[in-house]
Design a protein around this nucleic acid. Structure first.
Length: 313
DNA sequence: CGTTTTTGACCAGCGC
DNA sequence: GCGCTGGTCAAAAACG
């Protein structure tokens, strides 16, 4: 259920800013201050207060972490119940209104991605069970359904799945006020695959993508990166999901995006999951979000910048 | 200028 | 046969 549970995109940076501060000479400190950066306060009378504050914040952080894990656990339990329920409902669904939908519902294979579609979402809760299997394995039935969590404010009906799609229609359906978008695979002219994307009636932050048919060509994403200038269908399938920060010295901060994906995680199981291009994409987006929102990463940036300045002067 | 998106029109299946 | 609905087409607009 929770993709973040099988691969941790948080870098868990262990930066100690105080150590940086102690190494900064006064002239650099004043230059940093003139650049608008906060002046490092190393006065002794503040140290005790700061340590107390640090302890308090650490304890609070720990408590919040425990609460978060409980909430995630409950969420995952509820989600598994929901998936089980929808799966059973799908089996019962034998009397749709139209002939086309009859054939559609006969062999729908639901996949719940529930990841961040656009990288803006802070949600780290994903469907682990469904993430375990790459879509290529579950596309055997002609029709499959994928659920993708997006920002509720995001009005686009774009589901990034590594393929290149051309929108050919949009329609408001009776049972859902949100419009349904129709896409054809545009990577290969002969590819018969179609995709319908519509927001869920129950939860409008969830996009429901219904795939019809099978691709008769390899996934476009890796070739797209190299050959096409069109950035409309962005996929980062080939980017390894590895980032590391060296904190051995306060002056060195390294983002290692060149590591092979295998070296990132010992778990064989996890590696299999990461091999799915869709999962990779979600991971990369989650990692980008983690980086930009992680206060530790910001602290590391400050350390790196101050360290660089220290070297220059 | 080529490609993609938008959107109104059209078509086919279904229920009454 | 008629109306409703979902799906597709294609011309125009938008975009890079």
């Amino acid at each position: 259920m929770d993709c973040s549970s099988w691969i941790n995109t948080s870098l868990d940076l262990n930066i100690n800013p105080r150590r940086v501060h102690e190494d900064v000479p006064k002239e650099v400190e004043s230059k940093l201050f003139s650049l608008g950066m906060p002046k490092f306060n190393v006065e002794e009378e503040c140290t005790n207060d700061l340590e107390e504050e640090l302890k308090r914040v650490t304890a609070e952080n720990k408590k919040l972490g425990e609460m978060l894990s409980v909430v995630c656990e409950n969420y995952n339990t509820l989600r598994s119940h929901l998936m089980e329920y929808t799966r059973k409902n799908g089996e019962k669904e034998t009397s749709p209104t139209s002939k086309k939908r009859k054939s559609e519902s006969s062999n729908i294979n639901s996949i719940c991605v529930m990841g961040t579609n656009n990288g803006n979402s802070e949600s780290s809760s994903t469907d682990e069970e469904s993430c375990k299997k790459p879509r290529e394995e579950t596309i055997k039935p002609k029709i499959s359904r994928v659920y993708v969590r997006t920002e509720a404010s995001d009005t686009t009906l774009i589901v990034k799945d590594g393929y290149q799609w051309r929108k050919y229609g949009q329609k408001v359906t009776r049972d859902n006020p949100c419009p349904r978008a129709y896409f054809k695979c545009s990577f290969a002219p002969s590819c018969p695959v179609k995709k319908k994307v519509q927001r869920s009636v129950d939860d409008q932050s969830v996009l429901v993508a219904t795939y019809e048919g099978e691709h008769n060509h390899p996934q476009a994403s890796s070739q797209m990166e190299a050959t096409s200038g069109s950035g409309r269908s962005v996929a980062l399938a080939s980017v390894p999901c590895s980032a590391s920060l060296s904190t051995a010295t306060p002056t060195l901060v390294t983002l290692d995006l060149t590591k092979s994906k295998g070296s990132n995680n010992d778990s064989k199981n996890t590696r299999t999951k990461v091999d799915s291009p869709k999962v990779k994409q979600v991971l990369v987006e989650q990692m980008a979000t983690s980086l930009t929102t992680d206060p530790n990463f910001r602290a590391a940036l400050v350390a790196a910048i101050s360290g660089r300045l220290l070297h220059n002067y």
